[in-house]
Write a protein that binds this DNA or RNA. Sequence first.
DNA 1: TTGAAAGCGCTAACAA
DNA 2: TTGTTAGCGCTTTCAA
Lengths: 354, 354
Amino acid sequence: MSIERGLTSRALTRPTTIRDVADAAGVSVGTVSKVLNGGGQLRDETRAAVQRAAQALRFRPNEMARSLSGQRRFTVGLVSTDRHGRFSIPVLEGIEDALDAARISAFLCNTAGDPAREREHVRSLLARRVDGIIVTGQRSHPRPPLDVDGEPVPLIYAFSRVDSADAPCLLPDDEGGGRLAGEHLLRSGRVRIAHVTGPERTEAVRHRFAGLRAALASQGLDLPPSRVLTGSWSEAWGHEAVARLAATHQSIDAIFCGSDQIARGVVDALRERGVRVPDEIAVVGFDNWEIIATATRPPLTTIDMNLPALGKQAGLDLLAMIEGGPSPVSRRLPCSLIVRASCGGHAEGQPDGS
Amino acid sequence: MSIERGLTSRALTRPTTIRDVADAAGVSVGTVSKVLNGGGQLRDETRAAVQRAAQALRFRPNEMARSLSGQRRFTVGLVSTDRHGRFSIPVLEGIEDALDAARISAFLCNTAGDPAREREHVRSLLARRVDGIIVTGQRSHPRPPLDVDGEPVPLIYAFSRVDSADAPCLLPDDEGGGRLAGEHLLRSGRVRIAHVTGPERTEAVRHRFAGLRAALASQGLDLPPSRVLTGSWSEAWGHEAVARLAATHQSIDAIFCGSDQIARGVVDALRERGVRVPDEIAVVGFDNWEIIATATRPPLTTIDMNLPALGKQAGLDLLAMIEGGPSPVSRRLPCSLIVRASCGGHAEGQPDGS
DNA sequence: TTGAAAGCGCTAACAA
DNA sequence: TTGTTAGCGCTTTCAA
C-alpha cells in the first residue's frame, strides 16, 4: 500500500526522481541515495523496500544531477581530426572497448581538419566538463597541441603526432613493423629485396624503411638505393614501380611494400608480367587491410599495426590519468606479422598484440 | 578594482562559476545569467562589466547545471550496431554534420552486435537524459526495435532496417539505384545485360535487381534468369561469375554488378580473358567505394548511395522530432550515378544528392 | 538506523 | 534595471 503513495498525483511523462522513490518507499531521499549507492548502515527491510519502489517506478538516476555534485562525470571527448579515416576507425573501436569497461561515455567530435570546428568542439567538451580527451587522426604531419584553454583536463594523443614533447602520444612502431617484414623475408630465404613505398617525406615511410634496412643489416645485407622506390600510397604506384624495377633490370627475389594497396598493385603487375608470386618474387604488404589483403591473388602476407590495441591502450592511459595517476609516457606499440600466401612458406605465429 | 574582487581567495583549480563572475562584476548571479543568455533589460554598462568579468575569469557555463533546470540537454545518442562498418561511417558523418549545426553533442555507442552491450548503452543514454537517439547499422536483416524501456525519447533508424512498421527509418533507394544503372547501360546502347550480385536473400540484392529489370522492361527488354547470378559480396565471386558466364556461352555486352567489389573481380577477370572493358563489355558497379572504384582498370562507373546525405537527413529528422514536430515518415533516399570509364561514353550529370 | 538540510552551478519567476 | 530566491535531481555531512 504505502509503496503506491504518490503514484497517482504525478504527471505521466515526468521522469521519476529520487523524491518519487523516497515517497513511494516511505523514506527520505537521503536513505534512497544510500541504498542506491550501497552506502551507510541500513536495515535490510529498508533496502528492500527502497529497491522495490525504485524498480516499480523504473527509477533511473539522473546522471547530470549526480555529476553536478560528484567529482567525476564519467564522460570523455573523442576528437578525431580526419573525416573518420580508415585508420582512426579501428583506433576508436579500441578506445571504446577500454571506455565501455569503465562505464564511461564518449562524445564523438569530428573536426574534419577544420580548426574552427575543433575549437567549437573543445569548447563544448569543456563546458560539459568531460573527465578527459583523446585526440585521434592524421599522423603524417605533426599537429599543434589541442587548445584546451589552459584547462587542466587529461589529454592523450592516439595515432596522431603532436609537435609538443611532453604530450603523451601513442603510435605504432613502424620501424619494428619494417623489421618484422624484413626478418620474415630473410627467414623465407630471400636476399635480394626491393622496397616500394609511399611519399618519401612521411614519417611512416622513413621508419618502415629503417626497420627493413636494420633487418637486412643484421644479416650483413645491404639495400642499394636502386631498389628503394618511393611514390604514392596507391595501387597505380605499385604497378608503375614494378615497371621501373623491370626497366632497370633489378634482379630481386622479394618486394616489401609500404602499404597493402601498393602491394596489391605490385602483385597484379607481377602477375601480368608472368612473374610468379611468391615462387619467383615474394611480396609483403603493410596495414593488413583485410578487404585488400585477402582479395589479392595470392593473399597478402602483411604487417598489422594493431590499431584496436593501440586505441585500447590510449583509453587505459587516459583512465589512469583521470584516476590521478602520473601522465603516461609517449611510446610506440608493436606491430605484428600476418602470414598469408604472398610470401610462401608456412603460417607462423601471429601475435595479435592486444 | 571591483572586478578583482574574490579573485585571490579562490582555489586555483576549481572551475570558475557564475557566482565568481557575479562577485567579480559586482552584480548578482541572476544578472550574470541574464547577460550571458541575452535576456532581460539591462544597462549596457552592466552587460559590459559582466562580459569583461566573464572573459577575465575564462568563465565557461557548466552545461550539466544548465541542463538540470532547462528542458533540453543538447545531446543525442548514436547507437551503431555493427563494429563501425564501412557503410555506417559515412552515415555517421552526415549525422554529425546536422548535429553540429544545431550545436548538439553526440554520444558514440558501439554495440558490436551484442544485445547486452546495446542494453547497457541505452541505459546509460537514458540516464544521461539524451534528447534523442539515432540507430545505425546492418540492414541486411531487420533488427528488433531499440528497447528504450518505454521512455518517450525521439528515435530514428538510419541505414538500419527495423521490424516495426511505425518506426521512422531512412534507407537508400536501392531499386532506384538499380534503375539508374540499367538506364545508363541502355543509354550507352547496351541491350544484352547480365547481373552479377550478392546473396539472393538480401533485400538490397532484390531491390537492385528489381530496379535493373524495371529499366529494361521500360524498353521492352527482358532479363533471362541465365544472366542473373547471385553469390557473395566478394571480388572472388566476380571472377567466378565471369567464368560461369563464359561457360554458359552468354552473349552479353554489359554487366551490372551488385557491388564495387564484385565489379572489380568481374573487370579483372574480363581483362584476363582478353575481353576489353568497356568496348566489348561495359560494367557498372554499386557503392562508389572510391578506393576500389578508382583503382579498378578502367575505373568503375557506379552507383552512390549518398550515405552522408542520408545521415544528415536522419539528423535533421531527429532534430524535428526533438523540437516537438510530428514523427517523420520512413522513406528511401535517392542514389546517384557516378560516371567513370568502365561503361564508356562521356561523363554525365552527377547529382550528389546532398 | 534514518532524516534533515546544505550544497553542486545554473535558470527563471518574482520583488524591489 | 537589478537582486533574491526557489527550484532542477542528487550526494553528503551532520543530527537525531
